[in-house]
């Protein structure tokens, strides 16, 4: 997901406090910034929310790649509004992380020097306009699977950020599917483009949920703390079950010959993605890792004089105001 493979931190604190904390979570109470919380809970959340925020920001790039080439003025406006929303979502999430005692600049620096990760999906290139459809439909569709349950997460600021994000994000997947519909009903070239986009984004979308974690100790701890709401496999299955009929409606073929409806489990059987590719991407060897990080670093470095200039002006103004009083 946007926060893949976040390992939870072990925690060594007063067992009584831990038990009381767990009881609050079990009772459905929200944990707020000034409340006592285990150090492991705090650290795991910083890592997870930070990674989620980074994914939104890096996630601007593959779609931003097509803003200046959108085919109509309306499509350009829609895409721009969507990518802008992603910047907003990054901002809300950084804000939630900041309540845990880390600054946005610290998180940003950890992204830029590679200490923190972002979702593997954004290391894939967007090559045709149909990719704008596929990203909205599949990538946002997969993200929503995870984000909707996270609205109920135990940490108050995170939960509130997710509520706002889910509300805003509801048009994102629909605009993507709308692009796919237009293309699937379009010229032979457009239809081919749509199929090609599905072929390239299907498995990377399945990878977004991360490898199976049903036996993972870290995931179990995170689920107990209600900062992870479902297992990766549950979400992946749900995503496939929802998406396959949508592909059929478009007249497109999911690139998986083993895909079959399984009456007994009431879901599809499907092929696992190539996990070695996933680990390559996570390690930095995806098709676009270098470009994505370079773009973020360039924006940050080129923007330094602007950030410095505006704060310097604000300080001068404040000093002048004080002097006048």
């Amino acid at each position: 997901m946007y926060a893949q493979m976040v390992t939870s931190e072990a925690t060594q604190e007063d067992p009584q406090k831990l038990a009381a904390f767990q009881a609050r979570i079990d009772a459905g109470e929200k944990i707020e910034p000034k409340d006592w919380m285990p150090e492991g809970y705090r650290k795991t959340l910083i890592r997870q929310i930070g990674q989620h925020a980074h994914s939104e920001i890096v996630g601007q790039l593959p779609e931003g790649n097509w803003i200046t080439r959108a085919p109509t003025l309306e499509r350009k406006a829609i895409l721009l509004a969507k990518v802008q929303d992603e910047a907003g979502h990054g901002l809300y999430l950084y804000g939630a992380a900041e309540t845990l005692g880390v600054s946005r600049d610290e998180l940003t620096e950890m992204l830029l020097d590679g200490r923190m990760k972002y979702s593997s999906i954004f290391n894939y290139p967007t090559l045709t306009w149909a990719d704008m459809g596929a990203v909205g439909w599949l990538v946002d569709g997969a993200a929503i699977m995870n984000q909707v349950p996270l609205q109920r997460t135990s940490y108050g600021p995170y939960s509130r950020a997710m509520i706002r994000i889910c509300k805003e994000e509801s048009f994102h997947q629909r605009q993507g599917y709308h692009i796919m519909m237009k293309m699937a009903q379009g010229t032979p070239a457009q239809k081919k483009m749509a199929q090609d986009a599905l072929n390239r984004f299907w498995y990377p979308s399945l990878m977004m949920f991360g490898p199976s974690d049903k036996d993972s100790v870290h995931s179990a701890q995170s689920m107990k703390w209600k900062i992870k709401m479902n297992t990766n496999d549950e979400l992946r299955q749900k995503f496939v079950d929802q998406t396959v009929p949508q592909a059929e409606y478009l007249g497109l073929t999911v690139p998986d010959e083993t895909l079959r409806w399984n009456e007994e489990k009431g879901g599809y059987d499907f092929a696992e993605p190539d996990w070695s590719e996933f680990f390559d991407v996570i390690k930095g060897n995806g098709p676009c890792n270098t470009e994505r990080l370079a773009a973020r670093n360039k924006a940050w470095d080129d923007g330094a004089w602007v950030r410095e200039g505006l704060i310097a002006h604000a300080e001068k103004r404040r000093a002048a105001k004080l002097a006048a009083e």
């Binding site: 920001i57 931003g64 721009l80 509004a81 990518v83 901002l91 924006a299 923007g303 602007v306």
Partner: peptide, 25 residues
């Protein structure tokens, strides 16, 4: 709109996109 995703700080990125959206409209 060319700035989207590349501005010096998130708040400016969002503000520039608003300006571009107004102009496109």
């Amino acid at each position: 709109s060319e700035w989207c995703g590349h501005a010096p700080v998130l708040e400016e990125d969002i503000a520039l996109a608003n300006t571009a959206l107004d102009l496109i409209g």
